[in-house]
């Protein structure tokens, strides 16, 4: 049985949980470190192939565990929505509009950086969405996984898996501590549509505003639910076509102006 065959995984998981919770929430100025952060970081170190602590099949098993374990968290978040349904109904417009922030934010922030580091059509795959599993599937179907767009989406997928949760946990913590945004707005921002990124950013927001924990959970949960339901369709019918258009417009598949400029830059190197 699994418990005997993969005992190492569950033993390490237990160890990680105990160590992470013993360290507890630590605050250094604007940065908040949560137990989930240590669990992810130390877990990543344990799984480092060089140490040979885990076999490939062990790791694959841990990967199988994740989506189902995540559902347990979704239940907890869901249970916080019902009692606050009335409040959420009153902010229906905000819940709908924040989705546009989620969907176009990736393009708005990502594409300039991608062009700055001179990415080519990889930028389309990398920037059109947050690039979790359903988004990878969309690109794979349209362009194939070995196309430039496919390389972009896979790169983002791997990179997001490795650093996504750590990064948004730190980022959300800092932004929450700056006090520019209301905790409810931050909570909706946390509904990124990637479960681990949502958990990480929501954790940091709750750590910064513990008195609002219940409502933050309700808002983030509702936002994440929306991203999950409409996300795939939005990515397929709006985000991807828009990203392609914007990319082609800026890089000038049609006008040679920008490509000439890049050539000059390359030449100067």
């Amino acid at each position: 049985m699994d418990l005997i065959k993969n005992w190492r995984i569950h033993f390490f998981a237990l160890l990680l949980v105990i160590v992470a919770e013993k360290i507890g929430i630590q605050k250094f100025g604007l940065i908040v470190f949560l137990p989930l952060f240590y669990a992810l970081l130390f877990g990543g170190i344990i799984s480092f192939p060089k140490f040979k602590l885990l076999s490939d099949s062990n790791m694959a098993r841990a990967g199988q565990f994740m989506p189902i374990a995540m559902l347990v968290l979704m239940v907890k978040i869901g249970l916080g929505i019902g009692p606050n349904l009335h409040m959420l109904m009153h902010s229906g417009l905000a819940l709908i509009m924040q989705e546009f922030g989620h969907f176009f934010g990736t393009l708005l922030f990502g594409l300039p950086v991608a062009l700055l580091v001179k990415m080519k059509r990889e930028a389309i795959g990398a920037c059109y969405s947050i690039d979790r599993e359903p988004n990878v599937a969309i690109i794979a179907e349209k362009f194939g996984i070995f196309s430039p767009e496919g390389r972009g989406v896979m790169g983002m997928y791997i990179c997001g898996t490795l650093f996504g949760a750590l990064w948004v946990s730190i980022l959300a913590g800092i932004i929450a501590k700056l006090g520019i945004f209301h905790p409810y707005a931050l909570a909706m921002g946390a509904g990124i549509g990637s479960a681990s990124m949502m958990a990480a950013s929501m954790g940091s927001i709750i750590a910064a505003h513990p008195e609002e924990a219940q409502k933050i959970q309700a808002y983030a949960g509702a936002a994440n639910l929306m991203t999950t339901v409409v996300g795939v369709y939005f990515a397929l019918f709006i985000s991807l076509p828009v990203t392609i258009k914007v990319y082609e417009f800026i890089t000038g598949n049609k006008s040679s102006k920008t490509s000439a400029a890049t050539e000059v830059l390359n030449h100067e190197r």
Partner: peptide, 28 residues
């Protein structure tokens, strides 16, 4: 190259949605 892009994409999703939510919660 993918690393700065990845960080920007994730930050963009979070920050832009927060911004939209902040605006709309004010409106409402």
């Amino acid at each position: 190259r993918i690393i700065p892009v990845c960080l920007a994409v994730a930050a963009g999703s979070f920050i832009c949605a927060t911004l939209m939510a902040e605006l709309m919660l004010h409106v409402e």
